[in-house]
Design a protein around this nucleic acid. Structure first.
Lengths: 134, 134
DNA sequence: TCTTACGCTTACGTTAACGTAAGCCGAGTA
DNA sequence: TACTCGGCTTACGTTAACGTAAGCGTAAGA
């Protein structure tokens, strides 16, 4: 059962100590304490990875907290399970909207790139003004 | 050539007047002025749509500004074109990273959902503890 | 002419997500 | 024992992206 110090974790994930402490303060992480010192287990590393992925996706921290919280919810009773299923579908809708946005943007970038190449070709081949092909 | 007032645009896109003015103040929009009043043309609507899509993707406004700026850059000279192509590939990398993150998250949500359904089935069928199937 | 509606500017307030000191503690070491 | 190193807490500072209020301008209707 390996453990990590706060600096080790910070270096591994490329964040500052402040960030990790901040995440703990806001309930996103919950490391063990040996006296005052924080001890991070593998489960904490996984959580941090999840949080940072959420950040890359541009989610605010409180939403990330709810999402990550879903992963380690105890099986609980039927009402809880139904609620959780509901939350899952909400998140899924969000993510699928984002995927659509991303694909649209990527398509436009492709388009833009093509035009750039066309312009470059035009410029370097004697400037035939605005003709369609060569 | 239809035009829009600021309130019309705000209602259509579900944002406040303040937001639109803020975007103008920061160079994301650039509507015509008739006296003091803003007049929005279709190109402005398109820009606003692009900005809001960027927001949904979680990009900060200054990055959105650069991205949107790429779309209406004048063909310019070779150096500019090369720079633009470079920027395009940077953005594409970012977006593809995000897409990966999204797909990972979606996969985990699927997983979680399956477990929820399993738990529900177990609970409602006489509680056979932790058996694999029925 | 008075009011109402819509738009404008200026400016201070607010929240999120940390950054950045300042100062304290305990373990190892020269 | 005196340092230094790594970690800790407390707390004020900062930036982004607006919210919110105050007060003004002007055109259209009562």
């Amino acid at each position: 059962m390996q453990t990590w110090t706060i600096t080790e974790l910070a270096e591994e994930f490329g964040v500052t100590l402040r960030t990790i402490r901040f995440y703990e303060e806001h309930g996103l992480l919950n490391p063990e304490r040996r006296g005052r010192q924080r001890i991070f287990h593998n489960s904490d590393r996984v959580r941090l990875a999840l949080v940072l992925r959420g950040k890359r996706l541009g989610f605010p921290l409180d939403e990330i907290k709810r999402i990550v919280g879903m992963y380690d919810a105890e099986p609980g009773e039927v009402g809880q399970l139904r609620y959780l299923l509901d939350q899952i579908s909400v998140r899924r809708d969000e993510l699928e909207q984002r995927r659509k946005d991303i694909e649209e943007t990527l398509a436009e970038l492709d388009d833009l790139e093509r035009r750039c190449h066309a312009d470059l070709a035009r410029l370097s081949s004697g400037l035939p003004d605005v003709g369609e092909d060569a």
